[in-house]
Nucleic acid binder design. Sequence first.
DNA 1: GATGAATGAGTATTCATTCAT
DNA 2: TATGAATGAATACTCATTCAT
Lengths: 204, 204, 204, 204
Amino acid sequence: MPPVVSDKYKQEKKAAILKSAFECFAEKGFQVATIDDIVAHSKISKGAIYNYFSSKDDIYLELMNQHTNENISNLKVELEKLSCTKDKLDYIFQLYSQLNEQPQFANSTRVHIEFWLYSTRKEDLRDLMLDRYEMYKTLFNTILVEGIKKGEISSSVHTDEIAQIFWGLIDGISLHYSMLLDKYPYKQVYNEMKELIYTKLDMK
Amino acid sequence: MPPVVSDKYKQEKKAAILKSAFECFAEKGFQVATIDDIVAHSKISKGAIYNYFSSKDDIYLELMNQHTNENISNLKVELEKLSCTKDKLDYIFQLYSQLNEQPQFANSTRVHIEFWLYSTRKEDLRDLMLDRYEMYKTLFNTILVEGIKKGEISSSVHTDEIAQIFWGLIDGISLHYSMLLDKYPYKQVYNEMKELIYTKLDMK
Amino acid sequence: MPPVVSDKYKQEKKAAILKSAFECFAEKGFQVATIDDIVAHSKISKGAIYNYFSSKDDIYLELMNQHTNENISNLKVELEKLSCTKDKLDYIFQLYSQLNEQPQFANSTRVHIEFWLYSTRKEDLRDLMLDRYEMYKTLFNTILVEGIKKGEISSSVHTDEIAQIFWGLIDGISLHYSMLLDKYPYKQVYNEMKELIYTKLDMK
Amino acid sequence: MPPVVSDKYKQEKKAAILKSAFECFAEKGFQVATIDDIVAHSKISKGAIYNYFSSKDDIYLELMNQHTNENISNLKVELEKLSCTKDKLDYIFQLYSQLNEQPQFANSTRVHIEFWLYSTRKEDLRDLMLDRYEMYKTLFNTILVEGIKKGEISSSVHTDEIAQIFWGLIDGISLHYSMLLDKYPYKQVYNEMKELIYTKLDMK
DNA sequence: GATGAATGAGTATTCATTCAT
DNA sequence: TATGAATGAATACTCATTCAT
């Protein structure tokens, strides 16, 4: 419990807060979970939390940024390594194919969508969320556009729409899974979706 | 002693409260909108509202039940009138094709998904929501199953998965539209989705 | 503890809150006194207080408005009844001459000056306070101007400056009295001040 | 073992803290300004500040003591140099005549009066403040008493009351100026006040 | 049945002060 | 001595729900 403290210490503390916060949000929902919940869960004092974050919104935002940034940059790195369009798409599809096995997947989905909705009513948050959507969409779209350029995908494909359908389905399916849990046949639906899109792309 | 006010009066009052409540929820979100907002909007007193509903949750529940029941039974009635599978599917697809033109569509979507998420954490609400999902899924699934039986659809179609994909996409696309609004090309994405599914069904 | 309640009831409740609030402010100071203090002192619930007032600032403001309005309008009424300048000034001077005998005078002074200072840093409050100052200044100035017009006061008197000196002294003396209490010879100083100003006015 | 740092170093550090503290208090008010504001403004760590001062109150107290002591002793030194009563009074009056041109005057006034009021409620601070008042009053009073003794002032003057009126007016006028700023004709009022008092003294 | 005043636990956030390094 | 992270009680304000009239 010291001042004049290493960067590492601070990063770990911040990470610990974020971890606790995520678990609280996951358990109760972003709006319902309170700072006191995070205090109780993390055993870190309220004042300390506010030393690292400026508000409850800020905590979520960092949570999401971290998640998105890791996600997107990992994805980009991995996709760079692959040259043909099919491999790239396979890679992406495989990423989401087993998400339901991650224990926090349902909670995570709920938290993200809840905040997504919450942010609609807050000017300052909204743009951040829109940027995030744009990043994901572009990622998928780029693969398709390059696929067409390289002749690996039917040139009649409407890349932008397909990209939006992909993410729409990911969100829709995740949402339904997060509600129905074991009653929802995530994998089957997911595979069906993959087949649907692959048929459309007419990939070589 | 006869009742002091007629049943009709009571039903109208209840309907008026629900209407106001929906508008308040839509404008501010379910959790953020307050009973006082509903009082202000409906010009009905707080006490009166609690005469008709036992809680804020209860108001939402009735709202959703009513909406679902109307929706589903309307749908069933209309679908009964149609005999061939393609007509039935066309009818359903057409229903959602222009939803984005309805002024309250984005708000309505947000409210429903918000409550959907909210209900996950509440034992008593959860089952109600699951039933609702089941009803929608079954509706779509039944059409497909009958279509196969009548030979109007490829018998290799996984009806249940397709039904879940349909509603997953509806929810995913609606969610994205409700965030991005005019920046989201609802109709194009929707049409692409329709084509995707129709291709799969290989309808005659 | 009823709804559908008479105006009289509401006025009394409001008055009771204001009374308690004043006593709390007087005892601890405006900034230090808390809403919980007012709750404890008035035995009125926090929610009820916020039914009648929108904020702590608002409570003070009403307190001051009420006080100022009563004061000023009483003063105007009384002054109307008097025709010669000397009588009017005598009346005003007599008003403040025994204020120190009022039990709450010192506290009242402190609260008002504290809020006066506090309001300097708040845009919205500031103008209200300036108006109030203007009202008092004008009241005194008007008497002097009329006195000159009627030839009852030396025409060389700088009315505006004298008016500001009058209120400056009232505030300065009250401030000092509110700190020193019995150690401050309020009446003697006050009488000296009166003489000083009367000499200047060269009243007939 | 000799002290690690020199006394000079310590005094300078203390002075730096006081300077910053004054500026923070002046800008935001004593109660609103925070220790963190002082840290940010002074670039001195929180811990260091608490090495030199035991509390926020203590900082103010030292600030005021220093200010008062400097003021009073300067004043005494200057007044010693002058022999006739008129020169002494002229000197004092001239001191306050242009205060409004000092950029920090309004802020400074607010801080002092705010703390003055604040101190009324704190046993330990109160006596300090009373002493301070006494010192100022005595200073002025002494000049008048000596003036009478030397026959330079009318012997009918109530010296104590005049002294209190002087400081009452100084505080009252400063207070009003600190609120109204450019809307307050500080110099005119001040000169009028001077004339008023001089007339009374009937100085030779 | 209708009204709306009353309740009070609950909310995010602040800040003087402490103390391990 | 200096540092600044940690503490946690304190704050103004909110809002679903109750219940006397």
